[in-house]
């Protein structure tokens, strides 16, 4: 067997992240919303937030040196209130346009729409679980964004990821194990690099970097990482979308339940709503 060249893979990934585009198929929706003068803040918020890459990029822009805000902006609702509809509209629009014309490489191995469906399902599920468990309403939105962005680290992988996905299917293995084995790097690590690049806050970054290893997450962000980990597992097991991990390691589930204080019964309670929310989100996946 060929030796894994982790260093070379990491180098390639770093290069990709440097010129990283996003994955949106909501460009058209964003453009439509932005061209209408009667679009409500709710609509704008919804359209952008259903696209994990765009959401990340808009937040990144806002937190960039351009505005040099004293406090980091962590949600679109906040961004729209503080900077106004127009600014956020324009940020989203220009980001989306730049992205659509950038023509950068896209991963052939993970189908975009299914990847998104998984991201949205995880986001929705994390939010609903948090809500069901009494997390303050305001924070629930950040759970949604954390869920949406949790798998960003899979985007930079190139054709070599096809081998990873095939082995997962063939041997019924958890994706992250195969990534480490075949590539010498996993999507959590890559996600953390993107989170750094996009200047996402620590809570968000921890959910991305530790949703498969929640116990390793910094203590103050462990609970959120655990919600995202459970939501991810839920979406994977129920085949809500596809992000390459249909056989996740289930050992960590009990620990995550313990950390969050959730029970399996609560998953039943949110199930109906998850379907409905994803249904709504599908509208935006149709380009």
């Amino acid at each position: 067997m060929m030796e894994v060249d982790g260093a070379a893979n990491k180098k390639a990934i770093n290069k990709f992240i440097k010129r990283m585009p996003s994955l949106s198929t909501t460009v058209g929706k964003v453009m439509e919303i932005c061209s209408r003068t009667d679009a409500s803040p709710n609509e704008l918020n919804k359209v952008i937030s259903l696209d994990p890459v765009l959401t990340g990029q808009v937040l990144k822009l806002i937190n960039s040196a351009y505005y040099s805000l004293l406090n980091k902006v962590t949600s679109l609702t906040r961004a729209i209130t503080m900077l106004g509809m127009n600014t956020v509209k324009n940020m989203a629009l220009s980001t989306a346009i730049i992205r659509s014309v950038s023509g950068a490489k896209k991963s052939k191995s993970l189908p975009t729409k299914k990847f998104w469906a998984h991201s949205i399902a995880t986001g929705v599920c994390a939010k609903l679980l948090a809500k069901a468990n009494g997390v303050p309403v305001m924070e629930c939105e950040e759970y949604f964004v954390a869920g949406l962005l949790h798998d960003l680290g899979k985007i930079p992988f190139g054709d070599e990821y096809i081998d990873v996905l095939q082995r997962v299917q063939k041997e019924y293995l958890p994706l992250i194990e195969v990534e480490r084995d075949l590539l010498g790097v996993d999507h959590q690590e890559v996600g953390r690099l993107i989170a750094e690049k996009w200047k996402l806050n620590d809570a968000m970054s921890s959910a991305i970097a530790f949703h498969h290893d929640v116990e390793a997450a910094p203590e103050e962000h462990r609970v959120r990482a655990a919600y995202v980990g459970l939501a991810n597992m839920y979406a994977n097991i129920l085949d809500l979308g596809y992000a390459g991990d249909p056989f996740p390691a289930e050992e960590g589930a009990d620990k995550m339940l313990e950390i969050t204080g959730l029970t399996w019964d609560m998953f039943g309670e949110v199930a109906a709503n998850v379907e409905e929310e994803i249904e709504k989100a599908q509208v935006f996946l149709q380009s």
């Binding site: 919804k46 729209i80 503080m82």
Partner: peptide, 27 residues
């Protein structure tokens, strides 16, 4: 003065509880 820009009427078809709540908090 900052104000809540998001829809606060629960009967409105676009109403979103989290947005309405956070909008108020942020304002």
């Amino acid at each position: 003065p900052y104000r809540n820009l998001f829809i606060t009427d629960p009967d409105h078809p676009e109403y979103d509880e989290a947005m309405a709540y956070e909008g108020e908090e942020v304002a």
